[in-house]
Design a protein around this nucleic acid. Structure first.
Lengths: 109, 109
DNA sequence: TCCTTTTATTGCAATATTACGATTAATATG
DNA sequence: CATATTAATCGTAATATTGCAATAAAAGGA
């Protein structure tokens, strides 16, 4: 025990949960917002901007990359990251689709 | 180490991350969808519907209650749960607000 | 009151996540 | 080539999450 029993749920449910998991850390939210703000991409500036150590930032970047929300290109010795707009939109669609499922009446209990 | 360093981030960032965390498990997604589908509230039917043990479901319900997404009322020996429409809308607003931050141009890298 | 039904809580094991020091890999630059 | 710069990876410690058996708590009915 201890591991999520993904096989009990549909692909869509697991997918949605994984999307939420990618956003479920304030450092990753902060990274995404920083990438949005600077539009042009940043790299190790994130390390100085947020107060976390370089390996920690690198790990969060890796997760965001796995979640396909960001992409990075090597530029000399540094790496330039930015939002993947296509996937960003995909997230937006799927998440707002989930919240649209409720045609909210008054609470029933 | 091991614990999230919440003090490095803004209230909004932590709040958004916590909202995402509430959704970051397929069982909780499934519970919410079941509550939406049956509109009227369910209780221990969730245990038979999803394949998880009763204490596990109870724990997920507790987290959803902490996240204020659902509310429960005691009805005899059983408990009736349903979506909290007000908070549901709040989540919808805040999340879609986050995704709206990107005025997506082409990718920059 | 005793029993049944239903849900919550406790305690614990397994696994996942977060964070960082130390190191490595890759690329510039002198 | 030697050295500096930047980012990724490795290893590990601390903490959090997931899941369930066992048990407790609450309420209804015999």
């Amino acid at each position: 025990m201890g591991a999520t029993k993904s096989d009990l749920f549909t692909k869509k449910q697991n997918n949605l949960a994984n999307m939420a998991k990618a956003l479920a850390h304030p450092a990753r939210i902060a990274i995404l917002q920083e990438l949005i703000k600077l539009n042009a991409c940043v790299c190790g500036d994130l390390v100085t901007e947020l107060g976390l150590a370089q390996p920690t930032i690198s790990q969060h970047l890796k997760e965001l990359k796995n979640a396909r929300l960001i992409q990075g290109t090597i530029e000399g010795t540094s790496v330039c990251y930015c939002i993947n707009p296509k996937v960003w939109n995909e997230y937006k669609q799927i998440l707002s689709g989930f919240f649209a499922e409720v045609k909210l009446k008054s609470d029933c209990c």
